[in-house]
Design a protein around this nucleic acid. Sequence first.
DNA 1: CGAAAATTTGACATGACTCAACTGGAGTGG
DNA 2: CCACTCCAGTTGAGTCATGTCAAATTTTCG
Lengths: 191, 191
Amino acid sequence: MWPSLNIQIRKHIAISDKDLEKASAFFAYRKFRKKQFILQEGDICRFETFIVKGCCRTYELDEKGQEHILQFAPEDWWAGNLYSFLTETASTYTIDCLEDCEVLQISKQGLEELYGELPVMERYFRIIIQNAFIALQKRVLTNLSKPAADRYKDFVEKYPQIENRVPDHQIASFLGLTPQSLSRIRSGFRK
Amino acid sequence: MWPSLNIQIRKHIAISDKDLEKASAFFAYRKFRKKQFILQEGDICRFETFIVKGCCRTYELDEKGQEHILQFAPEDWWAGNLYSFLTETASTYTIDCLEDCEVLQISKQGLEELYGELPVMERYFRIIIQNAFIALQKRVLTNLSKPAADRYKDFVEKYPQIENRVPDHQIASFLGLTPQSLSRIRSGFRK
DNA sequence: CGAAAATTTGACATGACTCAACTGGAGTGG
DNA sequence: CCACTCCAGTTGAGTCATGTCAAATTTTCG
């Protein structure tokens, strides 16, 4: 029923067409326009969101009102605030759309029922989170060990599809830099 | 059979004594002395390691031979290199013991068999990784948004049990600072 | 006690930030 | 089709946080 999600699931687990069909029923299709919020700071994150089309970002504001981007989520990525979702507490993160988006959403109750009905889906989410965790560990180490210019180079190599569709100042925020610093890095510090 | 692991598991899932007993059989008890390696860079991570007693650290060396500490693991924490473990490729991380340690280890094959025999253990590991992922996201955001002094303060508040048993220069490494900078932060920048 | 490791301190260098101004393109409305 | 505005990006000058290098001091531990 949702081809892109089905393909993504089958990248990680073996599952029958019938079970996949069953799983599909737990997801709701929804569209968001560019700049709309998928999740607003202060709200409880009621859904985990799979991006079918478009690209969104998760960010947090600091005391000074500065945005710090935690994640970009283009096609086939998951977005959400897992902590808020699991504990049903107010989110400190905001998720908004950088482009018009089509998504699939599953609620907490839906996910729990899905786990009960199809235990293999618990494996799917374990693997997804495992991979996200591994990637995040690398990001932490890169932030600790590499200078800004190298981090930018790594980012461009690793996520060319993001680099090409997201404005530079947002990439700067993701990397923990000011737009000015990134601009100077891009210009290659020629003096 | 392994009380501390049993207690830890029951913090996250409901499981019968009998099943817990079954699960125990998949773990091997092992001791390491202070400074011994649980995992060396270049080796394949063959086990996920639960710390029963003691404290270890996971770190990576950069091109200049500088250590960057990814994680401390005291009692009831898991240590390992998930990527190396899952893909059976050489680890870029090293894990060594900051104190004499007692641990429980499970191999990849063992873990897969455990998932097969007791699917609820897949839930346990999903939850563990989920929590680790959530914590790591917070760390990324803290690194992006807060100055060194605040990060140190947060660390001390969050992990007093680690701060008290680990040398300062290792905490500095975890926070992405030089020992000198941490020392100045600790002295409160009094001039 | 003595050696090694950890921590502190000082002087200086540097990467990244801040503030401010400027440039150039993408809409928008007259 | 042109002014006008808005936003992203660039550039310059000065500042600040943190790093580097070196040395002194304190602590740890065999």
